[in-house]
């Protein structure tokens, strides 16, 4: 996504995304999950890279991401409690995309750099919006994290150019851009496919209704201890 578009969309959608404590809590929870997922990828990268110096850099970065996840999650939990109908968010359980193994170290660094830069632009737009709404606590939260995002953007670029050289680094950045576009396309496809699947399986469920009677007759629930008699395992 182009530099201007990210910031523009963040500014455009802020009133909708941050409307009321419920939406804000869910949005912040999503950020917490993303930060935790990033932490997992960076920890795995630290374990895979042959360079102790880069491993150290990834570990420091992962530590920041863990802290960000905690900050987002705490604020999300507080907002969830302030909602008109208070609710509890589930414990953070992010997944790892194993990007280091998938992309290799150069592309991994390029991917992290692009992601950090995008987050920076997005967060800058949010800070401006929160300040305009006098939501000082949320503005302060994003401002604190922004400092780290700027540092992460700088170091990942430096490491990438140091590791790959100027020409290869720029190629890696372009490749990652294309890879991300492809990933977005697949995600959109999955979104549509999931809805089609839902409709189809529910139709199948309705069609299978007569089998329910058969199952209840032929396979009733049998409580208690069932002796296996002479059934011996293995055969």
């Amino acid at each position: 996504m182009s530099r201007d578009l990210t910031g523009f969309l963040a500014r455009l959608l802020s009133p909708l995304a941050w409307r009321g404590p419920t939406r804000s809590a869910r949005k912040l929870y999503a950020f917490a999950l993303a930060e935790q997922g990033s932490m997992l990828d960076l920890r795995l990268a630290a374990a895979r890279t042959p360079s102790p110096a880069r491993a150290a850099a990834y570990l420091r970065h992962a530590d920041d991401e863990a802290r960000h996840a905690q900050m987002f999650a705490r604020r999300a939990a507080r907002l969830a409690g302030e909602a008109a109908r208070p609710f509890v968010l589930p414990p953070l359980r992010a997944d790892s995309e194993r990007l280091f193994e998938l992309l290799g170290e150069r592309e991994f660094l390029a991917f992290v750099h692009v992601g950090e830069e995008r987050a920076r632009r997005q967060f800058e737009a949010y800070v401006t919006w929160f300040k305009g709404q006098a939501r000082d606590q949320d503005a302060a939260l994003f401002e604190t994290i922004l400092g780290d995002e700027r540092r992460h953007g700088r170091y990942t670029r430096e490491l990438l150019f140091e590791l790959a050289g100027d020409l290869e680094a720029r190629r890696a950045l372009r490749r990652v851009g294309r890879w991300e576009l492809g990933r977005r396309w697949l995600r959109a496809g999955r979104f549509v496919a999931e809805r089609v699947y839902l409709v189809l399986t529910l139709a199948l469920y309705v069609l299978a209704a007569p089998l329910a009677l058969l199952v209840r007759l032929v396979r009733p629930i049998r409580p208690g201890l069932r002796a296996e008699g002479s059934r011996i395992l293995p055969e």
């Binding site: 208690g224 069932r226 002796a227 296996e228 059934r231 011996i232 395992l233």
Partner: peptide
């Protein structure tokens, strides 16, 4: 060897 004797399902 393991022989299954009884179960709760």
């Amino acid at each position: 060897d393991l022989r299954l004797l009884a179960s709760v399902d």
